[in-house]
Simulated assay, not measured.
Amino acid sequence: METSISSNIKTRFLILSDTHGHELPEECSQHHADVVIHCGDLTDCSYLTEFQTTIQQLQRLDAPLKLVIPGNHDFTLDTPTFQQKVNASGLDANEHDRRLVRQVYGDYEEVRRKLFTDDLQQSSGITLLDEGIHVFTLANGARLTVYASPYTPSLGGDWGFQYHPDTGHDYQLGSTTSSSSSSSSSSDPIDVVITHGPPRGIMDYTTSHSDTHSERGRRAGCPGLFKAIARARPRLHCFGHIHEGWGAMIAQWRDDGMGSSSSIAANEPSHFMAIDHGRSTVISKLARLVELGKEKVPAVMEASHCSEDPAPLTPGEHTLFVNAAAKRCRPEVPVHPLWLIDLDLSRAGAIC
């Protein structure tokens, strides 16, 4: 008697962001994952030593593939911004100053060329992603299609990978059809979106007195990014940047007029219109960590939303949003937990 092979494979993601060159709790390296995702702000000041510390931390994590994007603090990976900052500070005026810059920050493109090397990718699975779509065949046999972007909106624009909110940014995610259809407008529907910043309305509310990237007490996410996510409806969208927005939620997309693909294409959808909040689920948020107290906050927060789980994620109907900013913004929580997430992915070679 032949047994059928499932077209889906349970895949574990360990997600973190905004580590800012700090070491992670030892417990984080005790969890195996199929994919580690770091959503940017690898450093605090873009020092070479901070990049080296973060790479060492990533090497300790147990996963065959580790996907990394920069954040606004990692400005040396944004060469035009790095050059502008050096020129504006006058540190290119003489060889002595240029030598000091190279000692602390490296030369232009040095971090990319000498730290995030092909050898590092081969030995530790650490892969620095440029903006765009990337397709991987995982060690567990699943196919993973990722869209990555390090860009965030900013009124100042003096950090890396930033754009003015009035200008916006073109997040070219493409589009997918709902799970009820057997075809898609893309040969590889996007499974996971990795951005440094959040979409507007999703775990993007700033309340921290130390927030320097947006006005305190305002939503800091990007409306254009939300529109792109609402059109593509990936299984998972992970990000950081807004530390006080740490948390995760399963969003239920509306399939009425306000949430349909045609409406999204023609209008600027908001999280109020496109998401059915009455049928969405908050998995956790920072306020719940504060209630736990400093001694009870775990190093890793786990959630599973595969087909056999009590709350399965249905592609095209749900998106799991994860803000994985690890650096604390409240004294009651020493370090925000990393996220360990189980999701179904399509088997490589399966017909979608």
Rank of each mutant, 00 (worst) to 15 (best):
211 D>H: 13
213 H>M: 09
10 K>F: 08
16 L>N: 03
58 L>E: 05
328 R>A: 15
184 S>G: 06
60 R>T: 08
6 S>A: 15
74 D>F: 02
48 L>R: 12
76 T>C: 14
32 H>Y: 13
113 R>V: 06
229 I>W: 02
142 A>P: 02
268 E>W: 02
112 R>D: 15
30 Q>C: 12
261 S>V: 11
23 E>K: 14
352 C>G: 08
234 P>C: 09
339 W>C: 12
22 H>Y: 08
147 Y>R: 03
322 V>G: 11
205 Y>D: 05
297 V>R: 10
66 K>W: 01
279 R>M: 10
21 G>H: 04
306 C>G: 15
159 W>R: 11
7 S>W: 05
34 D>C: 03
236 L>I: 15
149 S>L: 01
81 T>C: 12
238 C>I: 05
310 P>S: 10
52 Q>L: 15
145 T>V: 12
56 Q>C: 08
25 P>V: 02
250 I>P: 01
51 F>T: 07
215 E>H: 07
201 G>N: 00
338 L>T: 07
300 V>R: 02
9 I>C: 08
334 P>R: 11
134 H>W: 06
28 C>F: 04
217 G>K: 00
31 H>L: 09
154 S>I: 01
247 G>F: 09
247 G>E: 02
141 G>Q: 00
27 E>I: 05
297 V>D: 08
52 Q>P: 01
115 L>I: 05
348 A>R: 00
206 T>N: 02
71 G>C: 07
328 R>H: 14
6 S>M: 06
237 H>Y: 06
80 P>Q: 04
299 A>Q: 02
156 G>A: 04
40 G>P: 07
